[in-house]
Nucleic acid binder design. Structure first.
Lengths: 265, 265
DNA sequence: CCGGGACCCTCCCCCCGGGAGAGGGTGCAG
DNA sequence: CTGCACCCTCTCCCGGGGGGAGGGTCCCGG
């Protein structure tokens, strides 16, 4: 039987942390003295402590650590760990993207953006729409677009999407993706929609979408500078995307903000 | 002039977060209405907000973000950013190491470790020693070892180190690295030391040091199981190390815990 | 058998960067 | 003038730990 201090030395976990793990039911001492409250650990708890240590180094949240330790089945365990590694991987992707974008932002002379005003007529499209969480947009998008592709064999233009403003404000909102076509079908989630005529502040974002918010910001600054106000969901048109070329620097996304002129006194 | 809500939409930073950044003097609104307290931002603050956003995505602490934004000189700014990227890189290394080690730990049958008791005679060595922070051990080690190598042309055995227990407890302690040699010189930090005779619980750690604490734990369990107690600093002997071969799986580190027999009633 | 020091206990506050909500004041348009 | 969206400040919460206060316990040496 090891007192908490000895166990701490053997596992390189601090005494405080061991006590917290006990409180969290994560690593319960082999014995606890009823009267004194002293915790006593057995030597065969060392491996558990080390697994916990490693998982925490990987930023696995304590509840997940608990689930991993509790699962007796090695397969379940492996899949839980794999899940987390997946998360780490995607986080790494985001980090990489942020680094690239930061480098661009910190360039002394950021490329100026062309924004123009364009009147767009009402368009008849085949669409899939839903209320979506911001985090789920990407996966929802790929599913919806696949369904659209299947339902619209002869599209009459580049695909696009309408994104509710609330998506960026409260991370949840209405999203609609579409392909323009002469005779929009109705099949599954796909149904005909007529996009209303609007006046758009339009610019084109070059490259992948990691730093598309920078372009958004530039459009926003332009809109404000020109005494306009935003009316309705943001439109994106995917002129060149992953379906067209794997070369990300060739991608072109048209960003359109519906605007109306604000009366200036 | 943009109210906080509009600015929030343009920058994809939440209203609450913008207020916090104001409180932290990180992103001060262009104007604040004295009577109402309303914050008003100007459109040219959007780039700053976006830089902050990117830096936060990279987990740069707010004070560092402030330093980066404040520094007008692009070179200083670039170096501050580079520093943080360096930190991210080393964190990534640690993550990779933890993944490898975790995989080893979760193997159904972890390789059992041979621990044996060995009496070691007093040894005359050339040594460099100091009180070191745990975080600095690696860099201190390489410096000390380089100095030792220069001062001991004909070593009489593998190099090693003595690591105070407090290093693992309070992350700060006495460290001594040595090379055994017949006639230890005294030059610079290098000086003769006679390592005392001890009885060691010895095992050999295979491979790189990322998961050496697992081996430590196994030694610890063995020591406890054999009714021994630890007396004095831990000894490591670098039988095969980076100086010998770049093949990490070939590295061999002998771990020795000075022990004495505990009276068992 | 006692004293002292190392060890252990619980409890509370702090850190960071953010989210949630209460409770109340403002700006603007119908 | 009234309603509603917007804004303000304030307090509390999270996770995963660190620091310290204040008090009990173990054990070894004298």
């Amino acid at each position: 039987m090891l007192a908490i201090g000895e166990f701490s030395r053997l596992t390189h976990l601090s005494v405080r942390t061991l006590r917290r793990y006990h409180d969290a039911d994560l690593l319960v001492p082999a014995t606890v003295d009823d009267t004194t409250g002293y915790r006593y650990y057995s030597a065969d708890q060392i491996p558990s402590a080390q697994v916990i240590h490693r998982l925490r180094q990987l930023d696995v949240p304590l509840p997940d650590v608990q689930r991993i330790l509790r699962s007796s089945d090695p397969a379940t365990r492996a899949s839980l760990v794999a899940d987390h590694l997946q998360r780490l991987e995607s986080e790494l992707d985001r980090t990489r993207a942020a680094v690239v974008s930061l480098r661009r932002l910190l360039q002394p002379e950021p490329a100026p953006v062309h924004v123009e005003l364009r009147a767009v007529a009402a368009t008849s499209v085949a669409a899939v729409e839903d209320d979506v969480e911001l985090d789920d947009v990407l996966s929802w998008y790929s599913g919806a677009m696949a369904e659209l592709d299947a339902a619209v064999p002869e599209p009459a233009g580049a695909p696009g999407g309408l994104y509710d403003n609330s998506l960026f404000e409260v991370c949840q909102g209405h999203v609609l993706v579409y392909r323009p076509t002469v005779r929009p079908p109705s099949r599954g989630r796909v149904h005909p929609v007529t996009l209303p005529a609007v006046e758009l502040a339009v610019t084109t974002h070059v490259g992948e979408h990691d730093d598309i918010d920078v372009t958004y910001g530039q459009v926003g600054a332009w809109v404000v500078a020109n005494a306009l106000a935003v009316a309705g969901p943001i439109r994106e048109t995917y002129l060149v995307g992953p379906r067209d070329t794997p070369d990300r620097s060739a991608w072109r996304t048209e960003i359109g903000w519906p605007v109306f002129r604000v009366a200036v006194p």
